[in-house]
Design a protein around this nucleic acid. Structure first.
Lengths: 219, 219
DNA sequence: CCGATATGAATTGTATACAATTTTAACACT
DNA sequence: AGTGTTAAAATTGTATACAATTCATATCGG
């Protein structure tokens, strides 16, 4: 099961039931089971998940803050439509934000965060060598999440995590083909090296390249 | 008299009571009346605003999604600390995002949105001429809100609105001195002209200049 | 037959009541 | 006196009940 902790606005909120329900609804929306514009009845969700309206409404509020659901006063919750162009926009936004994020992270990263990054990168090398695609998907995400966090800009972190989430589920199959793994590793290595050398410009450039190539790989 | 509904952060949510309460709490946090790390008791808020716990909890959820409040399960809501550097980061983020937003908006703006922008700009000229500072603060916000919306990228819009909100209240006195009004108008005029000429590069440059100068005016 | 209005049903917003968890404080023991 | 345990109080999480708004349908008038 993929970890969706970042769906909750604060990672410390580990209420498992609400978490799983929010995750389930989010996936239903992003995979099209719930169609754009469709009304989401509180009662139906209550029945489906055996919860009362109070927690269901809190979950809908959470989803509304991620943009997956639109709340209209006195009328209820509606599935927000996400078009192909929206996805393009998310990629473009990441292009814009990720280099800046890397810049800040290089300036601000702590010793603990740096060693976590080192450890994660070592695993990336290992999983690339062993061609473990499943593990790579997770560790790629983890590598970037550490960088987001190291920027010490919570708003930026939250924003980038949200884009990753939306991109992940809107593109159902995210997995790069196996032969892309070494390429991706080298892109990440360039970023990682910039961290070791504390070279913000090199980091931003490497991040730019990685984000751009990720976007291109999608098409 | 022109309608200024776009001032509220999400035009769809016109529940006036909850809105005002959320804003009031947000202001208390951003102005330091509620201190970082301090626990926020639901009961206290209920008494203060004469509401039951249900809407108060929804408001706290909303504030959590803006990052002003941190929710910890079974322990309650706590004020998130916002440092001066965080504010700097918000400005820097806006520097980064606003030019791109203007670019998209120029490409995608509808006829309706364009006429709203024209009307709003006319009011900006009027209020600058009459030196109505209070109205100018609102209309400046409205002008940018129309542009955010015209980008037709809901994520970008939401993000920029949040930064504006945080910037607005973290800098207690936001009002430019009166003699800045003409300068600000000219910055906006450059952006507005780019919309009329459908010149994305000129728009991005004018937006960059405005965002940068706004940041500088702060210091 | 079509449209507008009005009334009833359904749904959302709010308040209150109950359950579970956490915090506080008292008490016993070393 | 200090520490650990335990029980009571307070606070949060959830469910239910009531109020207000919206939606649907039926009836009346043209």
């Amino acid at each position: 099961m993929i970890d969706l902790d970042f769906l909750s606005n604060d990672y410390q909120d580990n209420r498992p039931v609400a978490q799983k329900v929010a995750e389930s609804i989010a996936i239903d929306i992003l995979t099209g089971t719930l169609r754009p514009g469709q009304r989401i009845s509180e009662r139906v969700l209550c029945d489906k998940y055996a919860l009362s309206r109070t927690p269901i409404r809190e979950i809908l509020n959470q989803l509304s803050s991620t943009g997956l659901v639109t709340l209209i006063p006195n009328r209820g919750a509606f599935v927000t439509g996400i078009t192909e162009r929206d996805i393009d926009d998310y990629f473009y936004m990441k292009n814009l934000l990720y280099p800046q994020c890397v810049k800040w992270a290089i300036e601000r990263i702590t010793a603990e965060e740096m060693s976590a990054l080192e450890e994660t990168f070592a695993f990336m090398e290992f999983y690339t060598a062993t061609e473990d695609l499943e593990k790579m998907k997770k560790i790629n995400h983890g590598f970037e999440a550490i960088i987001y966090n190291a920027s010490h800009n919570p708003e930026l972190e939250r924003t980038l995590l949200r884009y990753d989430f939306l991109i992940l589920y809107a593109n159902k199959d995210i997995g790069y083909p196996l032969n892309y793994l070494p390429t991706v590793l080298e892109e990440h290595r360039a970023i990682f090296r910039a961290f070791q050398e504390k070279n913000t410009d090199a980091g931003a450039e490497a991040a730019q390249i990685h984000a751009y190539k990720s976007m291109m790989r999608r098409k």
